[in-house]
Amino acid sequence: MSSTPYSRDAVIVEAVRTPVGRGKPGGAHSDVHPADLGAHVLKALVERAAIDPVIVDDVIWGCVTPVMDQAGNLGRNTVLAAGWPESVTATTVDRACGSSQQAVHFGAAGVVAGHYDFTVVGGAESMSRVPMGSNRTGGRSHPQHVLDRYGVEGFSQGTGAEMVAQRWSLSRTRLDEYALRSHALAAAATDSGALDAQLAPLPGGITHDEGVRRGGTLGSLARLKPAFRQDGVIHAGNSSQISDGAGAMLITTGDLARAHGLTPVVRVHTAVLAGDDPVVMLTAPVNATAKALKRSGLSIDDIGAFEVNEAFASVPLAWLAETGAKAERLNPLGGAIAVGHPLGGSGAVLMTRLIHHMRDNGIRYGLQTMCEAGGMANATILELL
């Protein structure tokens, strides 16, 4: 060890992701096994960092639906598929949509504690090959006493998104305007080359995120039927896309990075969790943001960029209304409505976007938060170094 556990920090020295493919038959990554999808970013990560993967103490890998092609510890299968030494261990984490953001928290904590010197964190999901909810086939996710506690027959993110829209008086027009913003910003970031450095396209595959649509209008979105309530405001056009993708980051200490000739990009400044009503389900990012700011001693205006996962348009809009953040700092490169939401990979995809955006624009602090099933949320504050 280069220092005592009590003086160790956690820094990210490299972050990379695949372009996100549409999660359906014929999507760009639909023929790629999820372990191979993740293996591609692992190989790209160590190539860019110019390290031997043998120094990696553990890989912490997010995956939301660990069945079928994603069963049997996807993290370990990903390490082996990447051709890394058998000595490199791995585990798979499921905190619903925040799984790979939680992998960052676990990896950073392990480095700070001295359990790891180098760890790789990230995640992947192939929603083409392993449809959402496949792990619930033949069983019930919630025992009856949990359903009785809340007086419901089940929990639905879509219904929660409608409840959020109603609570914050978000009209369908407002939600659709936000969805169009997401596509416009993602298209502009693609065209300007702002995403190029973070992407590791698969050989012969797409070079940019597949889900971005151009030329949409309020009129075209108005033709889409509500998805969860007959008179509702949430539909496919203002919700995140089903997707395939992966992302990974290399975490170590500042001292160890410099000793190995690596340049720290950001420090994991603050990492928190928050829980809220599991019926509404999608409001915990508000609480997580407040908790992160309180713990860090920073104000909302100190944060120069926010990544708030666009599970549904109502989520970031409600978050914006509650936090008072500057709207132009929210999801400045677009979000999951345009790019897609590959579940277990999304936390790493978002954080890779945030890290590169901070570095490219000299932004000192960035904050990422994601709503998660069960009414939970992660929030992470990064500091540019």
Rank of each mutant, 00 (worst) to 15 (best):
T190W: 15
P226L: 09
S99I: 08
L382N: 05
V59P: 03
P131Q: 02
S128Q: 04
A50T: 13
G83L: 06
M358G: 10
K291I: 00
A227K: 04
A35H: 11
A248W: 06
A259T: 06
V146N: 06
L80I: 10
R223D: 11
A35D: 15
L350Q: 09
V13Y: 03
P201Y: 05
S3N: 09
A325F: 03
A109Y: 02
T289A: 15
F312T: 08
L170R: 03
L385T: 13
V16W: 03
L350K: 03
D36H: 13
A197L: 13
R48A: 10
H33A: 14
G345L: 04
T4K: 05
A338P: 12
V349D: 00
D276K: 14
G335S: 15
R295C: 07
G275K: 00
L330V: 08
T190H: 15
Y178M: 11
Q101A: 15
G160K: 05
E14V: 07
L333M: 07
D360K: 13
D191M: 10
I300P: 15
A108W: 10
T91A: 13
A49D: 02
T263D: 12
S239W: 08
A236L: 13
G232N: 06
A227I: 07
G26C: 11
I300A: 15
V120Y: 06
G275V: 06
T65H: 14
P85I: 07
Q70N: 03
V268P: 14
A124C: 15
L262R: 02
A184G: 00
T323S: 14
L317D: 13
A124I: 13
A81F: 09
Q70E: 15
L202Q: 14
R8I: 00
V56N: 10
R129H: 10
T92P: 12
T190V: 14
D191I: 08
G151D: 12
M249T: 01
S30I: 01
G122W: 00
L273R: 11
G158F: 07
L317R: 06
